[in-house]
């Protein structure tokens, strides 16, 4: 038995393929946790796909931050399944987390919403061209698939998305204005929702 193993180890095929087989699980995990995707559409303009750029942005998403560490923060850009059509992926910015009070924008019927447990409020950066929580209300966190880490392509826009928009002065002023507007509409809750007692499922 032992001699059979050693003779297999000496074969040409084994020596050539074993390193690949050995690293396969690692490569698979990394490929599953970190994904490159090209952004279509205008809903995150001007942070992603600005009109001044000739290319569509290709960005790096991290599934790891969502699936393993459950790291959701306000102002994160996330990829989520559309609640209206599960085959459709949306890219939006988290505006409010559970327990926060949000002042909604026009298409939404109610002026103020308290985000229910396990939900988030997502919006595109240009809410008037974006199909976001102002249309379909708060969405469950379970629909969020991954979180944007950085823009990879085009090369002149390489870097973390929010930093890229702040590079020139006008972009920085606009981004500051949008951020202020976003924050002014959210009343952050102080209660730690996770420590509340749970009813049965």
């Amino acid at each position: 038995m032992f001699s059979l193993l050693t003779s297999i180890r000496r074969t040409w095929l084994y020596r050539k393929t074993w390193p690949y087989i050995y690293w396969l699980p690692t490569v698979y995990l990394i490929a599953d946790f970190f994904q490159l995707k090209t952004i279509n559409g205008r809903s995150m303009q001007p942070t992603l796909n600005p009109d001044s750029s000739r290319w569509k942005d290709t960005v790096l998403f991290s599934k790891y931050a969502i699936r393993v560490t459950h790291d959701y923060r306000r102002d994160d850009i996330v990829l989520l399944r559309s609640p209206e059509d599960p085959n459709h992926l949306l890219i939006k910015r988290i505006v409010a987390l559970e327990g926060d009070t949000v002042q909604t924008l026009p298409p939404y019927p109610i002026r103020e919403v308290v985000i229910p447990k396990g939900h988030v409020w997502v919006e595109g950066d240009e809410h008037f061209v974006s199909d976001d929580s102002n249309h379909f209300g708060p969405v469950s966190r379970g629909l969020i698939e991954s979180k944007l880490l950085a823009i990879i392509w085009p090369p002149e826009r390489f870097g973390p998305a929010d930093e890229v928009t702040r590079r020139d002065k006008k972009g920085m002023e606009n981004e500051e204005r949008r951020r202020k507007f976003r924050r002014s509409r959210v009343n952050i809750s102080e209660v730690d929702q996770l420590s509340q007692p749970q009813p049965p499922n």
Binding site: K117, G118, H119, S140, R141, G142, N201
Partner: peptide
């Protein structure tokens, strides 16, 4: 086939209120 879900099926889903854990 996402349309294969019928009324009366038993489904397993992430809980909308505790999607990370339940």
């Amino acid at each position: 086939f996402p349309d294969s879900i019928k009324r009366g099926d038993l489904v397993v889903a992430k809980s909308p209120v505790e999607p990370d854990t339940t």
